[in-house]
């Protein structure tokens, strides 16, 4: 890979402060992810994979090490600049969908564009396009509570993509979904990765889901335990 990495971490660490003192959740993580990669992050509960995702998403601040997003050290950015990155460089997909319950699907999808300062007409047009793309174009005026979990997750993906980020971070996006719906969602991720070259990083418990990725990163006890092709991971192989 001759391109610059989209993500590069050097000795990244995160401690959580508890009453008993700082507890390390993540230690000495150094890895690079290049544009167009599809990476699955696995590991048991408490292994630090979600912490790692939060750091990558600029939602949390590292306690140690460096994180370069598109070559820029995130440490040097202030809150507004981080907000800007989350708005136009990164798209988030959460396990719990995290749609706003009061506003309709179209408005949910258009939300990032409000903070990007896009005009009302363009917001609506682009949000509608994204809804069409995830196959929910007809439901724009419904509220999130009126559609199924799989549909909600597709809306969340539409929201993540609407401001055309080059990086999608998905934290257990299929965790609340049944197998068939999970496949649909994973097909969407695969499609955007292949057709638009969007870098996808997703956290998952399930090897079936991880199998959609090209590269697997495994965390154990806050350390990087495996980084390589999906098939070669021996530690994670089921008994």
């Amino acid at each position: 890979m001759d391109k610059e990495p989209i993500i590069q971490t050097i000795g990244l660490g995160k401690d959580y402060l508890t009453a008993a003192g700082p507890v390390p959740a993540l230690q000495e993580i150094s890895l690079s992810i290049y544009p167009g990669e599809f990476v699955a992050i696995m590991g048991p509960s408490g292994s630090g994979k979600s912490t790692f995702m939060n750091l990558l998403g600029c939602l949390d601040i590292p306690s140690a090490g460096e994180y370069y997003l598109n070559g820029t050290s995130v440490r040097t950015l202030d809150r507004n600049q981080l907000a800007r990155l989350r708005n136009d460089a990164i798209g988030f997909v959460f396990q719990g969908f995290n749609l706003l319950p009061r506003i309709n699907l179209l408005a949910n999808v258009a939300l990032p564009l409000i903070y990007a300062g896009v005009s009302k007409a363009e917001r609506e047009e682009r949000a509608q396009q994204m809804l069409d793309k995830v196959g929910l174009g007809k439901y724009g005026l419904s509220l999130p509570g009126r559609i199924s979990g799989g549909q909600q997750q597709r809306v969340a993906i539409a929201r993540a993509l609407v401001n055309r980020p080059r990086l999608i971070l998905a934290d257990e996006p299929t965790g609340n979904l049944d197998t068939r719906t999970s496949q649909e969602i994973m097909n969407l991720f695969t499609q955007m990765n292949r057709e638009q070259g969007i870098t996808v990083i997703l956290v998952t418990h399930e090897p079936d889901i991880a199998a959609y990725a090209m590269r697997l990163v495994r965390f154990v006890d806050g350390h990087l335990a495996y980084d390589g092709a999906v098939g070669n991971d021996t530690q994670g192989a089921r008994p």
């Binding site: 907000a83 989350r86 136009d88 988030f92 706003l100 939300l111 903070y115």
Partner: peptide, 16 residues
């Protein structure tokens, strides 16, 4: 609070 978190995650600034 959660709504505020979602908004912050998708790019709302403090002043928004």
């Amino acid at each position: 609070t959660r709504e505020i978190g979602i908004r912050l995650a998708i790019g709302a600034r403090q002043r928004d």
